[in-house]
């Protein structure tokens, strides 16, 4: 049998996967960077190689619609992620108590998470429906509201309503991660703190909080990265409307590149989004590394 040096074997084994990754990730990425410096348009092949330098980028950064979409995204991210963290941690604390039916509730917690985003979006669109929606029915029947509302048709409300749908689907992830961390806390520690004279609040801050802060911050960054890329739920529920009030950066990129077919400038938008994501991902990696050091 032929024996290669270890490094050669490693390269040999990596080659098939590397070829695939270069083919489906590397090449399109390089091509995207290239297009972002051109005036490429899907409908006119002649434009593909028309070099425009940094014009696309300058245009992007001066485009109020794009800047609005960044603002919308920031809104969406901060509302949905902060609510997901707060609700997730509270639910995890509840599910960490002993009570009848706890196992069933823990199992139910997975359901929203298991739902495909598109199905979740369609379900909430039905709930918010202006004519036959469950939310309108509920609020009018219990007397909180006099007449039906068009929840997704109101520019002041639509982004919040989409955020609610996203929160419902994603808080269980935070809850599960937190619950896992809570279960690693030794009962002795809680009891020791009790005997040391700590009340419930002090026990939370001295024992529980330090044990869950690291995993919860990982969940926070993961959810931020995900929420920043939000696309499918917007596509299904509002298509960015009304009046662009739910248009997020991903949706803006999609519109520019595929609806208006301006591949060149779409690519420049996409790369700006990638850059922002990269910062978030770097934060995530830094957090993971920090946790590895303290553990």
């Amino acid at each position: 049998m032929v024996r290669f040096p270890k490094a050669t074997t490693a390269w040999l084994l990596l080659t098939p996967m590397m070829t695939i990754i270069i083919g489906v990730v590397g090449y399109p990425l390089i091509k995207t960077v290239y297009y972002s410096f051109t005036a490429a348009h899907l409908a006119s092949p002649a434009t593909t190689d028309r070099w425009v330098g940094f014009k696309n980028y300058l245009k992007a950064l001066g485009n109020t619609k794009f800047l609005d979409s960044i603002e919308n995204t920031a809104y969406f991210v901060s509302v949905s992620v902060s609510a997901e963290i707060v609700i997730g941690v509270l639910v995890a604390l509840l599910l960490n108590q002993t009570f009848k039916g706890r196992t069933l509730l823990r199992a139910l917690l997975i359901l929203p998470l298991a739902l495909p985003t598109v199905v979740n979006a369609m379900m909430w669109r039905l709930i918010y429906g202006p004519d036959f929606g469950a939310l309108n029915a509920l609020l009018t029947q219990i007397g909180l509201m006099a007449e039906y509302q068009s929840w997704l048709g109101d520019p002041d409300l639509a982004l919040w309503m989409v955020a609610v749908a996203d929160i419902w689907k994603n808080f269980p992830l935070v809850a599960l991660i937190t619950l896992a961390a809570l279960q690693t806390i030794s009962k002795d520690l809680i009891e020791a703190a009790t005997l040391d004279g700590a009340n419930a609040w002090q026990r939370f801050w001295t024992v529980v909080f330090p044990a869950i802060i690291a995993p919860v911050s990982v969940a926070l960054v993961l959810r931020t990265i995900e929420a920043f890329k939000v696309f499918d739920i917007i596509y299904v529920m509002t298509r960015g409307g009304p009046a662009n009030s739910t248009k997020t950066v991903s949706f803006h990129v999609y519109q520019e590149a595929f609806a208006y077919m301006r591949i060149g400038s779409g690519a420049s938008y996409a790369l700006i989004v990638v850059l922002i994501s990269a910062v978030l991902i770097a934060t995530y990696l830094w957090l993971i590394k920090k946790q590895g050091n303290t553990a």
Partner: peptide, 13 residues
């Protein structure tokens, strides 16, 4: 009343 636990139960952080 103070207690010493078998696991020591020291606050790790």
């Amino acid at each position: 009343i103070a207690m010493v636990f078998q696991s020591y139960a020291l606050y790790p952080h």
